[in-house]
Design a protein around this nucleic acid. Structure first.
Lengths: 356, 356
DNA sequence: TCCTGCCCGGAAAGCGCGTTCCCGACAAGA
DNA sequence: TCTTGTCGGGAACGCGCTTTCCGGGCAGGA
């Protein structure tokens, strides 16, 4: 006896569709969930019509059990209210849905020690892949409880990808901050700048360090050095920019351009410097990093020279890497340097200059 | 014959735990998933130890199928990169995980017409509840395709809650913007302000209108009217604040306090007004709405008088309402007016004043 | 004409787990 | 001692779907 339909209140099941179409359940399944087998057109249309009529939707849990895997990828982020994570999540979601996958998002709510519990929880869903996005590399060390979970997960079902600092046994997508810093240095050198000051957001965040390191390397390629005394350590926010700018003014420092490792720092600094009567970029040029979507000061968002952090792409690439066992190397787009009015061309208008 | 263990590579199953513990599968299940039945301590510890040892994690899909429901709630938001949605999602996630539920987050990526497809997709997961967060009330009208999906979902499995404008057959959690506006009016009146100007962010967003309407009602309670000419329509951003402030200056308007329907508007306006030499709050006081976590200008974030939008609470409340069939009425916390230095007390320091 | 393949529908066996049903063991009451 | 009641353990079934496996029909070749 075939199961009884729950039509009155329950969700229609595959058996209901089959009965309505007058075919077997296997035929209905083959039509509705693309099997390797062919089904005659006559039956096919009957099944589709019946499915439409009874309002059938696949039960993913049942399908997962039968197939042995759940078409989902889990993403663990620090705090979804943070733009950094939100944009990674956005890209990851986009890529997951493009591939027909579900994206399960979990937030540690700032408490990174919760990562392990979240991962353990997530494993119950048997997702095919797991992506961990983090700003710091505090806990994912070999031997840690978190790493145990990751390895366990990796052994069982799927792959693990970390967005951030690499940690041996698992794949990682690193933000191209080093390259971004280097590219920014190159661009500024080409514009004719030779005297730099850096407002560094945070010494303990790898991304921030990478930006500075890359910048230094980029400068040295052009034969320019950046003494430590030209690096102002502050915090990655507008307030940090104000503080650094205050120090800068107190030092009576003089630079051609201030390079900030975060756009927010730049906006804060701009405000502080302008408040002190400095003209920007007249008295000092400025550049940021991050490419926020709008200026908090209401300026034209494109005015600030900055390096675009490909956060959304990183999320997408992480999902791809986690889902495609092929991709061992992660082809992240090269950071894009956006030159705006905040760093005008200092080179004299000679014929030797490139176009524009 | 009991199923064979996949120990070498597969995920350990309940049967593996049972065998390792030397008990039956049902006993193991009762221990690991709190059944009504009791299990002797001796067996209980054996099962728990075995589970730990083999690294067992419940297979949620299998459990869902056996139990008949999946402990998940789905959340559809506009764009997760938007703070508005991110904070709702944050609160929803917190509440869901507090209840042991999974939160499935989907973003329409700004294209609200995708909502219907997303909902249809989500239904395959058979979540117990569905929360829809939206800024506008564009498509969820009776008879729309989206509403069809919602009703269908509601009939089958769970409840639907909309965060935003109510739409007949489904429950809604409305942001307390009206009350917030009213409360702000009351607070400003009590501080002694009588002459107001409003910078309105967007005419077509219900929240913005509600804030204005509530503010008007609050003023009228104190016998103060707000003529239409005192309302500057602009856009909900710092740039909008700059534009509105520019209009305000051009009009040679004079108000005791400028009330903005978004904090970002306020920050933009502050910058523009300061740029014109006005002192704030000396020449004009200012208040916002939204309570961002930090000032983009680097000021003390608490300096700006504003009304806190309980976005996280809204997300949490929506999840609660969707999960608890009891809660027909949604007890949202009353909006909290934060008074900062941007709106100093104008009343003379008489004895009649309240404390502080 | 008969046989060999191939194609395609249908029946049935799981996927991993919760749950019901039944049995056995044991304690308490008569 | 017998009965009744209580409670833990084991076997079997079902959740909704996929996936063999089986068998019938039909085309093409000998």
């Amino acid at each position: 006896m075939t199961p009884v339909s729950n039509e009155p209140n329950g969700t229609p099941r595959l058996a209901d569709v089959a009965r309505a179409a007058g075919v077997s359940q296997s035929t209905a399944s083959r039509v509705l969930n693309g099997s390797a087998r062919q089904v005659a057109d006559e039956y096919r249309v009957r099944v589709l019509a019946a499915a439409e009529q009874v309002g059938y939707t696949t039960n993913l849990a049942a399908q997962a059990m039968a197939r042995g895997h759940y078409p989902a990828v889990a993403l663990v982020v620090g705090d979804i209210r943070d733009q950094f994570f939100a944009r990674i999540a956005f890209g990851a979601m986009r890529e997951a849905s493009r591939r027909g996958y579900i994206l399960n998002l979990l937030s540690t709510e700032g408490d990174e020690s919760r990562e392990r519990d979240l991962v353990q929880d997530l494993r119950r869903q048997r997702p095919e892949a797991l992506v961990l996005a983090r700003k710091r590399d505090t806990t994912a060390r070999a031997g840690s409880r978190l790493m145990e979970q990751l390895i366990g997960f990796q052994r069982e079902s799927g792959r693990v990808v970390i967005v951030g600092e690499p940690s041996e046994p698992v794949l990682a997508v690193r933000p191209p901050d080093f390259d971004g810093g280097k590219a920014l240095a190159g661009a500024l050198l080409e514009l004719g700048y030779r005297d730099f000051v850096v407002f560094l957001g945070d010494n303990s965040i790898p991304s921030e360090r990478d930006r500075l390191d890359g910048f230094r390397v980029g400068l040295s390629t052009g034969g320019v050095a950046l003494p430590d005394s030209h690096v102002y350590l502050t915090s990655p926010s507008a307030a940090g920019g104000i503080a650094a700018a205050t120090d800068y003014l107190a030092d009576r420092s003089k630079a051609e351009v201030i390079v900030c490792t975060e756009d927010d720092i730049a906006w804060g600094a701009i405000q502080r410097l302008r408040g002190s009567g400095l003209e920007i970029p007249g008295d000092v040029a400025i550049a940021g990093y991050g490419r926020r979507r709008s200026s908090p000061l209401g300026d034209d968002a494109d005015w600030l020279t900055t390096v675009r952090s490909p956060l959304e792409e990183m999320g997408a690439v992480a999902v791809s890497a986690a889902l495609d066992p092929l991709a061992s190397d992660v082809p992240l787009p090269a950071p894009e340097v956006h030159l705006g009015g905040s760093t005008p061309d200092r080179t004299p208008p000679r014929a030797s200059r490139r176009k524009r």
